[in-house]
Amino acid sequence: MAAETGTPTTLTLKSNDDELFSVAESAAILSVTIRNMVEDGCAGGVIPLDNVDGKTLASVITYMNGISAIPADEEKKKSYRDKFLSDKDFETLADMVLAANYLNMSCLMDAVSAKIAQVMEKKSVGWVRRKFGIENDYTPEEEAAVKEEHKWTFEGVETDDDN
C-alpha cells in the first residue's frame, strides 16, 4: 500500500460509467471482492467496478461508511440497515442487490433481499412480473389452473399502484 503507517488508507473506486469515488479502505473491505484485491496488492491505483453504476456505487459507499462507523452492536447495525433501506424503491433495491452480489457483501445482500421480500409480500402476480421483467409463459388455461389451486393466497393482495 502506498499510504504511510498511521494514516488511514484511501481507495479509489471507479463505476462502470467512469465516476470516481474515494473511500476509506477500512470501510471498503466490507466487500470481499475489494478485500481480495487489496490483499492481492492490486488496489494501488483505481479499482474498476465494471458491474456497478455511479448512482448505485454512491449509495453502497454511503452504506459502507455508515455501517463501519458503528461499533460491534448488532442491534444498532440492524436499525442502521433498516433506516438506510427504508426509502428505497424497487428499482434501486434491485440495483443494490446486484451490486452487493458482485461486491460480495453478505450483510448488505441479506438486508436488501429481505427488504425486497418485504416490498413484494402483498403484491400481485402482475406487479412481480413487471418489476422482475419476467415473461408469463403459461397458457391462459394453465395459469387459471395454478391460480385456482391456491385461490386463498389472492385474498388481501394490494392493488397495483403503478399500472
Binding site: 425486497i116 421480500a117 413484494m120 422482475f132
Partner: peptide, 22 residues
C-alpha cells in the same frame, strides 16, 4: 438472487407467485 429473495417470503406469497411463470 431471486431464490435468495423468495426464500424470505411467507408461504402465502410464495403460493401466489407460483402463477408468475413456469
Amino acid at each position: 438472487i431471486i431464490e435468495n429473495i423468495l426464500s424470505r417470503l411467507p408461504a402465502k406469497s410464495l403460493l401466489r407467485f407460483k402463477s408468475v411463470s413456469k
